[in-house]
Amino acid sequence: MDQDYQDTRLDDTDHRLIDRLDTTPPSPIPAGLVDRVLQASMPALMAGRARDVTRLRWPVVVGRLAVAAMLGVAVVIGFWSTPSGSTSGTFGLPLTADLGDQSSTAMLASGPFEWRDGPLLTLLAVKDVGYEQALGDLETVVHTVGTGRMNMLGLVDDEGPHDRVEAELLTVTSVAGGAS
């Protein structure tokens, strides 16, 4: 029995009676009681342990879903907020359909489109290129890539073969979008 409150009103006879109560159980402990209780409680203990594991998994799953959702949102926001001039290849091309019907003057004068000036100027430069000329460029690109002789393309010093191919494809796609 642990340290406990003492009642100072108790006399010696009370303490003798307490000793007798403490040392005289009302019934003997049955032999094998602990073993039987252990045997009966073990399946419940396993269930209790398993229940906790299940309970712990849910927050982990929810947490991972939340992180995935946040990443998804971040990617979408990043996609729409990144200036298309900083993208490479055809990443910014969906803009061409919108641009095709607008006058270049209006586009250049409009404030909100400032961030698009880079690709916009490129698109404006190719806007007047004829469809046949663009098709010819495409044929050249396909032929060059197909024969593996990409060095035949007229390259400037700071422009790699892939940049050149992409530029040509951009031209063709823009013209095709404008024509349709």
């Binding site: 049955p30 009681l33 039987r36 209780v37 009966a40 409680s41 073990m42 419940a44 203990l45 269930a47 209790g48 342990r49 229940r51 906790d52 309970r55």
Partner: peptide, 16 residues
């Protein structure tokens, strides 16, 4: 004894 077993089953199930 029956009740004692039942008590420890409950404690075991709610061990966490």
């Amino acid at each position: 004894e029956e009740i004692t077993q039942s008590v420890f089953c409950t404690v075991a199930e709610r061990v966490h």
